[in-house]
Design a protein around this nucleic acid. Structure first.
Lengths: 109, 109
DNA sequence: TCGCCTCCTATTGACATTCGATAGGAACCT
DNA sequence: AGGTTCCTATCGAATGTCAATAGGAGGCGA
């Protein structure tokens, strides 16, 4: 049994990361904090999930990264959406809505 | 990358099974068909996912099973919700709605 | 009665994903 | 110098789903 508080539904992490980066570039932990804020504290991906996901998305060509100084003058790798990433965000958002609608429909019937 | 058409979000299968059985007992494939119907064809769990899940839920005490004859006179194991299972259905439904709301909120902002 | 098809339960191996724990570098402060 | 915080990163374990496959049992037609 998994902890419902911190556990994400599998498959939602990529979408949340893309969305978090849609308003501007962020570094790793910044992405996590942004997701926590966006979801009202419901989700807060751990480093062990977050970094593999970031690398996966970059590998797929949806993100690109560059080293820069964070707001506290620490070295940080900033990620931002590529054009393909923005397109992917649209597709995954649509897919999520389709799924959510199917689930909602199933549960209320 | 997973196929969005057939793949379930991890964690939703248990909930869909409990819901499928909430209106009466069904055998294994019947559960699958009912889920497909409930979700408008969006989800249709495969045997390799379905049976482990059924056993898991029975192990947890949320289902109980009995051998009987199906509508076609074939031996079939019928599953039905226990009282604890019905309670679990309520809890998981609530958890799902909380998650769905958090996601929707994150995506529309 | 024989063979075939369908229905149903079930298992196996592969694969992807997430988590918890942990490591380690770098900058700041006292 | 030592400690703290921030940030990136990796590893092992656990979980869940899928595709493929096996096999028993009943119905049906030749």
């Amino acid at each position: 049994m998994k902890d419902t508080r911190t556990a994400l539904l599998q498959g939602t992490l990529d979408l949340l990361i893309l969305k978090a980066l849609s308003t501007g570039e962020l570094h790793g932990l910044g992405v996590s904090r942004r997701i926590e804020q966006m979801t009202g504290g419901t989700f807060a991906p751990q480093p062990g999930s977050l970094f593999p996901a970031l690398h996966r998305l970059e590998e797929a060509g949806w993100l690109e990264s560059s080293w820069d100084a964070s707001e506290n003058n620490r070295r940080a790798k900033f990620y931002k959406l590529t054009r393909a990433g923005r397109r992917q965000l649209g597709e995954e958002t649509e897919a999520w809505q389709r799924i959510a609608m199917a689930m909602t429909r199933a549960l209320e019937a």
